[in-house]
Nucleic acid binder design. Structure first.
Lengths: 374, 374
DNA sequence: TTGTAAGCGTTATCAA
DNA sequence: TTGATAACGCTTACAA
């Protein structure tokens, strides 16, 4: 027996040996020369234990660095903590922060804890986290997927694990999802720009591998083709995913000739990057962004956006999940969060205005002043 | 025995009765007429089980809505998932979102999951969550405290639970903490304003019950008294905690006469609220805010701030916690995150400028135009 | 005041 | 291919 093997080792060796298994109450009991139950009493601060015994046991606990195993405790006590897991891309993106906030809220209302992880857009991490969360025994999962194949989940789905996808749809499996009206929203944004006379409109977005990006690009193309505008590939930039990268990409876009007069930014990261670049270059294009953001109203030219309600997406996703957990069965549900166009100024700059300011700017060639007044 | 009691109930009743205890493998086994171990085999998709048996068991699982208990499983398999808990105020505040992001990152690097909860500044919720998290068996806790008495934690601290406080210090117990240089930072901000000739400077903050607010107010007073400026209570507003409330409070502050020429906003919520109010009222005061924020550089008047590095706070907090978990002992550690003043424009508007614009504005009494040019 | 034995719901071992 | 039994680390019931 292993027990006997341990007995032959000195207590100090047991203390020092970092590799030895975690000490149990049994170990503490042996060390203190009392029964397991007495240790339990001390650990749980039950009364009716003699002070001297308490001291002995506490010493042993200290020496062995004993910590109670909550798993065993909760199993025995019949305590089953409920939790759900959320996998997002990154909390630094306010869209996901708001999404997570709504989910956290719902989890709390339903007496579940929230375990939060960030995939950083890495499919490998997504899978690892899903497996990890399932092993933890979460009741359900909310996923903003980074991967393009979710068949690895199908076995668990059969076994009753509940999964809801957010922002992007599941691939290869049937599952609930809450999505934005990406294509329609993007289309509306670009149509809006076209209605102000623009024909050279940039698309600034994530790589097309991301479903939201691809869908929004489709909306962009829809609007162009309806208006009979030919797509100029040079105006399409889909290599950025951070604010900084978007800023650089915008600078590239600004160099294209004939120059673009408007820009559609595919999410708040791109929009902010684009605005930074435009401000730095002192270029005044019409801009519409996907996703609203806190300070959109307060910029020098308030920003026209397709408001994409992250909070609502999180709320509805959690609602679906908790419905499932409450026993609602049936085929996969799909909910669409509509986008509202909020005109604030940046999207209503006319093509003519832009062209005029471009003309004067070309004259002044390399002058970098903050003042634009003529 | 309860077992017998259950036996007398029909299987269907057992299915329907939502109140009956969760079914176990034993229940499934009985239902399917096989042994417990066979059920285990099916659940774990072990081979070497006859197809007919598998079918029988799966049917029983379906009927009883059986789900494997991960607690028991992990206990038996010796799997102990590690996790830490984080209690913040609210993810919608970008300061906490960045803090949480850094903690999530560190948790991930240390192979721990992160359980995230929001206290919403409610001491009661804080306590509930702490207890809940400890019951879950988290290895450690990172807390942005809402409460003013943490003695309820002392028993657990003795028992080896590791706790690190963030942003606000622990009360009534000794524990590690990572704090901002609140007083010094606020003082620097207000001195900066004073150096531009301001003497009527508003303090816009949270209620004084919040340590950060109280400390930053001390810094505000330090700067005033050093400059020999008498405190005008009417310029101090500490009743807001949301952007919206800050906006309203700012409107109140603007009515004070003689009028203030500058404003110090105690955190990013107050700063944004103040800027909104100022923009709406077309009032041009000097403003310095505590906390940097993403678009501070891009507003019409770029915002001067005391940059308060949320990411660094989260990172260092997690570092302290994982050091403790790795066995570092010793007295409570305290780390200070210094604030850097970043002058961008809003804080460098001189008192004279403000007074001039105020004068012209008083003339034009009630005209609400967007144009300010003279 | 302390200890013994059973059991929480699963998996591992070994036998049938 | 299936099943009986012990064990994971703790708490509960009961006994000493």
């Amino acid at each position: 027996m292993v027990e006997n093997g341990q007995d032959t080792r000195s207590a100090t060796a047991e203390v020092r040996d970092g590799l030895s298994r975690r000490p149990t109450m049994r170990d503490v009991a042996k060390r203190a020369g009392v029964s397991l139950k007495t240790v339990s009493r001390v650990v749980n601060q039950e009364p009716l234990v003699e002070q001297r015994t308490v001291a002995k046991v506490e010493l042993a606990i200290e020496e062995l660095r004993y910590r109670r195993d909550s798993l065993a405790r909760n199993l025995r006590k019949g305590i089953r903590q409920l939790s759900i897991g959320l996998i997002i891309e990154d909390l630094a993106n306010p869209f996901y922060a708001h999404l997570a906030q709504a989910v956290e809220d719902a989890a709390d209302s339903n007496a579940h804890s929230l375990i939060l992880t960030s995939s950083r857009e890495d499919p490998e991490r997504e899978r690892t986290f899903v497996i990890n969360l399932l092993q933890r025994g979460v009741e359900g999962l909310l996923i903003v997927p980074a991967s393009h194949d979710h068949r690895y989940l199908s076995a668990d789905l059969v076994r009753g694990v509940r999964v809801v996808f957010l922002d992007r749809s599941p691939k290869g499996i049937e599952a609930d999802a809450v999505l934005s009206e990406n294509r329609a929203g993007a289309r509306r944004a670009v149509e809006h720009l076209i209605s102000f006379g623009h024909r050279r409109i940039c698309f600034l977005g994530d790589p097309m591998e991301l479903e939201t990006s691809a869908d929004r690009f489709l909306g962009y193309k829809d609007a162009l083709s309806t208006a009979g505008i030919e797509l100029d590939e040079r105006l399409v930039s889909t290599r950025s995913s951070t604010v900084q990268a978007a800023e650089q990409q915008t600078n590239e876009l600004l160099k294209v000739r004939p120059a673009p007069t408007a820009l559609f930014a595919q999410n708040n990261r791109h929009c902010i990057g684009a605005l930074r670049a435009l401000q730095a270059a002192d270029a005044r294009l019409a801009v519409v962004g996907f996703d609203d953001f806190e300070l959109a109203t307060m910029l020098p030219t308030p920003v026209t956006v397709i408001a994409n309600d992250a909070h609502e997406m999180g709320r509805q996703g959690a609602e679906l999940l908790f419905n499932r957990l409450a026993g609602v069965n049936g085929g996969p549900q799909r909910r669409l969060i509509p986008g509202r166009l909020i005109a604030r100024g940046s999207g209503e700059i006319t093509a003519t205005e832009v062209e005029q300011s471009l003309a004067t700017q070309e004259d002044r060639a390399k002058y970098a002043t903050t003042e634009t007044r003529t």
